[in-house]
Nucleic acid binder design. Structure first.
Length: 889
RNA sequence: GGAGGCAUAGCUCAGCUGGUUCAGAGCAUCUGCCUUACAAGCAGAGGGUCCGCGGUUCGAACCCGUGUGCCUCCA
């Protein structure tokens, strides 16, 4: 004790030190053998390519708060960290690395490429986990997992085989969202729709009968005319009835295409004539199927035109270049009727940003309809709150998605990921789905299907890998090896987990699918609560992004304001589900709070302590009152925060604690017991004050782990292996067990007197005398010392009548009179009082009206009526006092 | 085009099953203070037709309808 402490809070001096200590002591490690109640969170695994951004900061701070609190409440807290292999993102990074080294991916074999990828992963992957340590994240690092590590990959493969066996996975030729940059299919959820300004071209198609008649179609994608196989009109459209059944010619290539009729065509849109391009549009594909039209795919996987485009001017060129060129060429050839500005929606790839191309291809799918039929709990559990969403309004979004669920495309044309365990013969026929070629043959033979005497070496495995989310959806189970060994001790103990904290935008990608996996593979929900964080935006509500450069580097912020300051600042204003508009001033507030705490500690630390016997009884008694009062406050806030935590209102819980520390403890309590400068403090008060401080640090620890540990460690001699992070969280006491002095009138008096000083420009150093006319003197008498000390009052006299020539300070229904040796501005004073009387008159009128209203008296609860009567009486008394004071001016 | 959400002080948000003359917090703002823990501070103050309109009710920020504006998700 009594160490020299720096005048300001300097987090850099101790944050790293305590984090290393926590790790050394293995406070964050949890074993399944424990008798304690488990509390489990699995981290939303960040991309292995990721670097810490503000979204992670918010998300992981919230998880850390929940975990640390649970740990202090005596639970066996386990927060499992890890990373996601992020197939598209990582593969892109590796390709880029190879390019820098002058290596082309196409020159490498699959195995060569993968060895480079692993090399990249070992070297650069997972930086983000180290960054989380800076934030104070109390993860069980011994349990760090990676979605592509061998055992998790094995789980993925087993699940694929299992679902295939159950008939829930199939392979089919379908229209997919094709990412020409990533050269892979992506799922619907990975497509981001954007509105863009484009042009609507009106193009003439001449009829094949050489009559010079033409049909005009409108399209935003003129390059796709080369893939046209029909023109479609609405059968009810009188304008075009005569054309149906005739043939038209595709400009330039002069392919003959039929004019057909289908109600799908919107007569209002464009010209009412639709060009049908089954290979490059989802709806056109459906039309093509219906009328058995050919499919002409004119694009390569990179989005270049191929030989099917027929016109050599365009073959081998990029789709966007062709769009420009063909528009010019059509114009020159007289095929363009007009061009309009047009706003439309285009799909872009979430990962690469490339414009998505609808493309027909053979992919693997999960049959979601069937899946949901098997697992109705996936929807029910959320709707009946067995799995609670915070905020609950996310339930609607969830239901809507589930009810309109579509099949999940799970194959990706990449190398970095789990390779699909499907085997084909030399003609490309699927032999079987199995772990190995040998097993595939065994299965095939067993079914008597492809029993052509093939050998394993005759088969080849599917070239594609699985969607990354196909491994993430197993995360809550796979991190505890629940697939390898269904009944191992860890999974039995830690699963289902308690809370999941995640961003709302991955509700469908991840949360919903984890719930599906939970019920399908374990017959149990994966977690009980889902906390949706908001999105971190800048002050102009723009999403923080690298390209905008509007995102501060979290590590710089931590360096500047301390991890605690950043955590506190981010959380104080971010209710669940609300976006947070980040501004550095938020973090400043956090830092200021830490500084406040630091200085409160310095104050206490500097006190000289003497035994109680050295003090007179009055001081001891007075301090005892202050102590009792704070005990009551502390307990009340503890109850309040408990409730808020139950509802996952973390920012409100923090706000309560913030005010408890700043207002109740620092501004009131410490000022109440603070000895005169240079004087000592009595031992029992000191001890109690330190205990309060310790308890406050515990309550705050989940939010601000570092400063609370630093102070807690300083407060007493602590042994190795002790830490606030494993201390017992303060428990709520029965309110009836606590003596709670009612200081409300006293506090109000003090504030009124301070206010008077401010208004009259009196220095706080100048003391004066006051007179109190109270309805119940007991609310003041025992606490007079507080008024004297905190409002610098020299003497207090209780009176029965009003005091002449004095200023009246109303305190609830009591009156305080102050006689000042100042020239009083009687006019101003009168005006003020008159206004007050006017207000009270109005108030009284409304209360009278209520009490005089028969229907109110008949319908309102008796307590309410009683309350109104009390208000009436109080108002009357106040008016009387004010009128009296007005008369004596 | 479909679904959902939101609208309360300058900003970010509370306001539980309607009941303190139309209401709260933090931050920001303003005023006065360098009062020996803290100017990253202390003491005060000001600030709101609770989005518009209509309805239900003795009584509406809260319930119902309608209009407007914003956001999110899906196609």
């Amino acid at each position: 004790m009594n160490k020299e402490l720096s005048k300001t809070y300097t987090p850099q001096a101790f944050e790293d030190k305590w984090y290393s200590y926590w790790l050394e002591q293995k406070f964050f490690h949890a074993d399944s053998g424990s008798e304690k109640e488990p509390y489990t969170i699995v981290i939303p695994p960040p991309n292995v390519t990721g670097v810490l951004h503000m979204g992670h900061m918010l998300n992981n701070t919230i998880q850390d708060i929940l975990v640390r609190r649970a740990r202090m409440q005596g639970k066996n807290a386990c927060w499992v960290p890890g990373t996601d292999h992020a197939s598209i993102a990582t593969e892109a990074k590796v390709v880029q690395m190879l390019r820098e080294r002058g290596i082309k991916k196409s020159d490498l074999s699959r195995d060569e490429f993968l060895s480079y990828a692993w090399e990249w992963k070992e070297k650069y992957g997972g930086i983000i986990l180290d960054q989380l340590k800076k934030l104070g994240a109390s993860c069980d690092w011994d349990r760090t997992r990676f979605t592509l590590e061998p055992s998790l990959s094995e789980a993925v493969i087993d699940v694929f085989i299992d679902l295939h066996k159950k008939g829930l996975i199939y392979r089919g030729l379908r229209m997919v969202n094709w990412d020409p940059q990533g050269k892979t299919a992506v799922s619907d959820e990975e497509v981001i729709h954007k509105e863009v300004n484009s042009k609507l071209y009106y193009i003439k198609y001449f009829l094949a009968d050489d009559t010079g008649q033409f049909i005009t179609i409108a399209t935003t994608r003129p390059e796709t005319i080369l893939a046209d196989v029909a023109i479609c009109v609405n059968p009810n459209d009188e304008r075009f009835k005569h054309l149906v059944g005739k043939k038209a010619l595709v400009p330039f290539i002069k392919r003959e295409i039929p004019v057909i009729a289908d109600e799908y065509v919107d007569m209002e849109f464009g010209t009412g004539c639709l060009k049908v391009t089954p290979a490059h549009d989802v709806n056109d594909y459906a039309l093509g199927q219906k009328y058995k039209l050919p499919v002409i795919d004119i694009l390569t996987e990179e989005g270049f035109l191929n030989e099917h485009a027929e016109d050599t001017r365009y073959i081998g060129k990029d789709r966007f270049a062709v769009r420009k060129q063909i528009a010019i060429d059509l114009e020159e050839a007289g095929h363009i009727l007009k061009v309009e500005e047009y706003k439309n929606q285009i799909g872009t790839s979430e990962r690469t940003g490339a414009v998505i191309e609808p493309r027909l291809s053979l992919q693997w799918w999960v049959d979601m309809k069937k899946f949901m039929e098997r697992n109705p709990q996936v929807l029910d559990a959320v709707m009946n709150d067995e799995i609670q969403f915070h905020p609950a309004k996310m339930k609607n979004t969830y239901r809507h998605w589930i009810e309109n669920i579509k099949d999940w495309c799970i194959s990706r044309q990449l190398w970095w990921g789990q390779r699909i365990p499907a085997w084909y013969d030399n003609e490309g026929n699927l032999v079987a789905v199995a772990k190995t070629a040998r097993q595939a043959i065994e299965i095939a033979n067993g079914q008597g299907l492809k029993a052509k005497g093939q050998k394993p070496e005759d088969l080849h495995q599917d070239e594609d890998v699985l969607d990354t989310w196909f491994s993430s959806w197993l995360w809550p189970i796979s991190v505890f090896d629940g697939f390898k060994d269904k009944d191992n001790a860890d999974i039995k103990y830690f699963y289902p987990t308690q809370d999941l904290v995640t961003a709302p935008e991955i509700l469908f990608f991840w949360v919903a699918r984890m719930i599906m996996a939970g019920y399908e593979f374990r017959g149990e929900k994966p977690f009980s609560n889902v906390y949706y964080t908001g999105i971190v935006r800048d002050k102009q509500r723009r999403k923080m992004s690298k390209s905008l450069g509007n995102s501060p580097d979290p590590l710089d912020l931590i360096e500047k304001f301390g991890a605690d300051g950043v955590r506190m600042g981010m959380l104080i204003c971010s209710p669940a589900g609300n976006d947070i508009l980040f501004d550095e001033s938020m973090v400043e507030q956090g830092r200021n709070f830490a500084n406040k705490i630091w200085n409160a500690y310095r104050l206490i630390n500097g006190w000289e302590v003497k035994p109680d016997s050295a003090f007179n009884d009055d001081i001891l008694k007075a301090n005892a009152i202050s102590i009792d009062w704070f005990k009551g406050r502390f307990n009340a806030i503890l109850i309040e925060t408990e409730d808020k935590f139950k509802d996952y209102r973390l920012s409100e819980a923090l706000m309560s604690i913030y005010k408890l520390i700043w207002d109740d403890y620092c501004a009131w309590y410490l000022e109440m017991i603070k000895p005169v400068y240079g004087e000592p403090i009595d031992e029992s008060t000191y001890k109690q004050t330190v205990i309060f401080f310790e308890e406050l640090m515990k309550v705050l620890h989940p939010f601000m782990p570092f400063i609370t540990e630093e102070i807690w460690q300083n407060m007493a001699e602590r042994k190795q292996g002790e830490s606030i992070c494993i201390e017992k969280y303060p428990e709520i006491k029965l309110v009836s067990d606590l003596p709670t002095p009612d200081l409300s009138r006293v506090f109000e008096s003090i504030q009124q007197i301070r206010n008077l000083r401010n208004a009259k420009g009196l220095s706080p150093k100048e003391s004066f005398e006051i007179f109190i006319k109270a309805n119940s003197e007991n609310l003041y008498k025992p606490y007079m010392f507080l008024i004297q000390k905190l409002a610098n009052v020299s003497a207090i006299t209780f009176v029965k009548e009003k005091v002449e020539h004095a200023i009246l300070l109303p305190v609830d229904i009591d009156e305080i009179y102050v006689v000042l040796n100042l020239q009083m501005d009687a006019g101003a004073e009168k005006e003020k009082i008159t206004k007050e009387i006017e207000y009270l008159d109005g108030f009284l009128k409304s209360v009278d009206a209520k009490l005089g209203n028969e229907k109110f008296m008949a319908n309102a609860k008796p307590e309410l009526v009683e309350k109104e009567r009390q208000k009436q009486a109080d108002a009357l008394q106040k008016i009387l006092a004010l009128k009296g004071s007005l008369g004596s001016l």
